[in-house]
Design a protein around this nucleic acid. Structure first.
Lengths: 152, 152
DNA sequence: GCGAAGTTTCGGAATTTTCTGAAGACTATC
DNA sequence: GATAGTCTTCAGAAAATTCCGAAACTTCGC
């Protein structure tokens, strides 16, 4: 099946938006390729050809997307190459990956609180800790609510 | 008042964590300086000296933090230089800034949905749109709940 | 106005990130 | 176990980001 131009344009456009949200450029383009295909699976070679990128880039990008849980390997016995496709419900998982970053910030904040005596700085840091702790505790429930709504 | 070593270490540590979450390096360091000070306000020169950074860098970093709503100008009539301090409750605001990015992703997703006929790709894109639309709608309520809890 | 202190802007340098191309490793088939 | 196709790794190159320093601009006090 051949992608028409407006489809590819839209894919590149979305890749750009994902890039601006912090994702690596090539990883974003590869993800868009998986998002926009009607094929049941793609190989690294397929995507490389489609995006006119090197095999090396694809290897790195797919490795990242796999680690993020955005794509998964598809077993295809009679093929020599690895086949990949997007995971079914990757967005909630992707979002909860941010928790790792928030955890890091929280640890540093705690360290800061331990390092300063009571005063304006201490108050500020405690407020910061309260906020991120709250977010960290609420996000799982938020994602569950989305799943629940979706199930209906 | 002079910052002791453990305080500065903690500040640099937190700056590093913020950097890893996507913030510019110097902006993160400047933000940490404002977080950890007990002074009512700091000038660009104060921070430059403390961080051993150039006036040019400070200008850019403070401009960014100001645009993000993390710091604000403090009027100090009898001083020639601009004084800054952290805003009181910047975290919720900072978080809702992400909505801008999500909006961008949503626009690109809609464009993609318009570009493809019904099929697996279309389904995938619609699911993606549903997720981000949900998050966008829920985040304000989440932030309000934090404020409410905090007020008590 | 004039001078001093502070801030912003801008070009260039340096660091970091990212991509490619080539070489080596792996796997399935024969 | 040889071979052909595919993937991964690595070093170097290209590109982007970030920082600094100098110069221009603004503001305040005199």
């Amino acid at each position: 099946m051949t992608d028409d131009k407006s489809r590819r344009d839209a894919a590149e456009h979305l890749a750009l938006a994902l890039t601006q949200s912090g994702m690596q450029r090539m990883a974003a383009r590869v993800l868009a390729a998986f998002l926009f295909t009607d094929e049941p699976s793609l190989t690294a070679g397929d995507v490389a050809k489609q995006l006119d990128a090197s095999a090396g880039s694809l290897s790195g990008a797919i490795k990242l997307l796999d680690a993020l849980g955005m794509v998964e390997r598809v077993p295809v016995p009679s093929s020599r190459s690895e086949h990949f496709r997007m995971r079914a419900e990757p967005w909630a998982d992707l979002y909860s990956k941010q928790n790792t970053v928030i955890d890091l910030i929280l640890q540093s904040t705690d360290r800061g609180i331990a390092a300063v005596d009571d005063g304006p700085a201490r108050q500020r840091l405690e407020h910061m800790r309260d906020f991120y702790t709250f977010m960290l505790s609420e996000i799982p429930a938020l994602l569950e609510r989305f799943e629940a709504r979706r199930a209906k």
